[in-house]
Structures are given as structure tokens and as C-alpha cells.
Design a protein around this nucleic acid. Structure first.
Lengths: 147, 147
DNA sequence: CGTAAGCCTTCCAACAGTGTGAAGGTCAAG
DNA sequence: CTTGACCTTCACACTGTTGGAAGGCTTACG
């Protein structure tokens, strides 16, 4: 199977398959005489696994560990569970940060007349935040990388 | 004021100040004889504005628009409000995606014994998703860039 | 057999937003 | 004058994905 067919079958783009190979997430694919990468059903199976882990928000690093456990027949399910729950905690942390921002901004927007006049509490708040936000202050050094 | 002092006073790192200047988010700073960037209290005020907008999750593009409105004395507050609410909607959309992932994964983790045996519903699900997730399927092509 | 479409290959660049580090100039205090 | 703390620019890293260009391969059709 060519990379295009594997991409279609797995839902992972050809570009990403090559990228995953490059960073060592997946083993190097075998090559045809012409140098084309060749994939088996097994490979497609693995790519689909990766695709789903990605869809659940796992970063490549996490997917790497999941793949290791997946392949390891003597794994302990406790390790998988720990990995999953750590990721859930990470997701929840990010959710809380976003929620803080959203509610703060929503409160400010509610207080804005939204008319043709220039005065607006949103800009005022950005200019000089009032000490106590009605909602937990979203103004923090919260940083979040890509998923 | 040097860039270091402006950074300390505004909460925006010197690196980021230079970056913001480079991409045109802020005007080019004046220079001293030695070529050092010089900042006024006004500039620091603007940097603080940027810092807070960033803390509320606005992307540089959005901050650009906010700055324009901030400086525009004849702005209509309706425009500010529209911008803010559009961002809130964006945040909520991302929250929903993350929440979907978290709850799906949490449900799977709950079903995992978490012992020394290898069988684990988390891996099973990644291998071949059961048609209907208990929670809305988090498995989608959901993509989200940086904040 | 020739050729054109549609694959495949590699390499290079871009995105957001931030950080790291190197090589060198400058400023202030001792 | 030296030292250390600053400033300058430049280049590169990260994450994950996409886009394109230049060239080779395959396949199907005439």
C-alpha cells in the first residue's frame, strides 16, 4: 500500500505520516524499488490508533507512550490508566483557564452598552483592571501550548 | 526608559516587546544614541493593555483590533463588544472540544481496572472505537491553534 | 510507444508565541 | 580601567500541520 492509500485508510495525512516517521513516532516504512514507502494493514491499524489518540488531545509525546504500552503485551493497565488520567487533568486545567477567560470577558461584555458611544468597560478593564474581578481573575500568566 | 525597565513595568518580556514591534503590533520605538529602544509611560501603558488582552486569551490578531479601537476616540462600543463576544464564542467552542475529550477519556479510565493485568478499555477504544461513546464522541477532526 | 494525469520523493518555508543562546556594543559603578 | 549588567541583532528551538516546488514513477489511454 502506498502512503496515499494508507493516509486515506487511516485518516492521517501523508504529510503527517512522513512527519511521524521522521520524529520517530512510527518506525521507518519499507520501500518499493522506486523508493515509495510501503504500508501493511498492521501499519494502517497503528496509524488509526495514533489518529484517535490525537483526536483525544494527546500530544505526540503522550501518543509515544501510549503506543509503547499498546505494543507491550506485558503492560499493566494501571500504567495506561495513569497516563490517561494525567491527560484528563491537563485537559481540565486548560478548560478551567479558558473558562476563567470566557466568564471574565462575558461579564465585561454584559456591562458594555454596545452602542455608538465610545465608552466601554471592556477597554477600561484592559487599560487598568479593577482589583477584584467578579469572576476569578482570568488575568494570570496562564500559558498553554498546542494540544 | 530602556526595554528592560519597560518589560518589568508592563509584564511583557523584552523579547516579546521586540517581537511585537517586529510584527507591527506596536509602533517602532525611538532609539537612544547607542541604539537602545526608548519607552515612555504611554508606551508602558500600551504594553500593559496588550499583556491583559493576551491574558484574556486574545490572539495577536485580536489584540491588534482591540488596540485600534482603544486608540480610536470615535469608536463605537458596539464594535468592542462584538469583538469580545466573538472571542468568548471562540473560547467556548474550544472549551467544548476539550470537555468532550476529557469526559470521553474519563469514562474510559473509569472502566479500566488499573491493575497489573494488560487488558484495558482505553487501549481497546483507541484501537477500534465503539460506535457510540457514552459521552459525545470526542473523536473528531477538532483542531485548535495556540491561544 | 508516447504522453499526460496523478501519484510519489525530498527539501524548504510558513503559521503562533515564546524562549534560548551567541557575539558583540554600552553604560554605570567601583 | 575593569567588571557586570544591560542592550543590540541574528539564528534556532518548540508543537503540529499545511503548503509549495522540483523532479521521479506509474498507470492508463490513445
Amino acid at each position: 500500500m502506498n502512503i496515499g492509500a494508507a493516509a486515506k485508510a487511516s485518516g492521517v495525512s501523508a504529510k503527517m505520516i512522513r512527519y511521524y516517521e521522521e520524529i520517530g513516532l512510527i518506525p521507518q516504512a519499507g520501500r518499493s524499488d522506486a523508493g515509495y514507502r510501503i504500508y501493511s494493514e498492521q501499519d494502517v491499524h497503528m496509524l488509526r490508533f495514533i489518529r484517535r489518540a490525537r483526536d483525544l488531545g494527546f500530544a505526540v509525546e503522550g501518543i509515544h507512550e501510549l503506543l509503547g504500552l499498546w505494543r507491550d503485551q506485558s503492560r499493566r493497565s494501571a500504567d495506561v490508566k495513569r497516563l490517561a488520567l494525567a491527560h484528563v487533568a491537563d485537559l481540565r486545567r486548560r478548560i478551567a483557564e479558558l473558562e476563567d477567560m470566557a466568564s471574565t470577558l462575558e461579564t465585561l461584555a454584559e456591562a458594555c452598552h454596545g452602542n455608538t458611544r465610545p465608552d466601554c468597560p471592556i477597554l477600561s478593564e484592559l487599560e487598568a483592571p479593577s482589583g477584584t474581578g467578579a469572576h476569578g481573575r482570568a488575568v494570570s500568566k496562564a500559558r498553554f501550548g498546542p494540544v
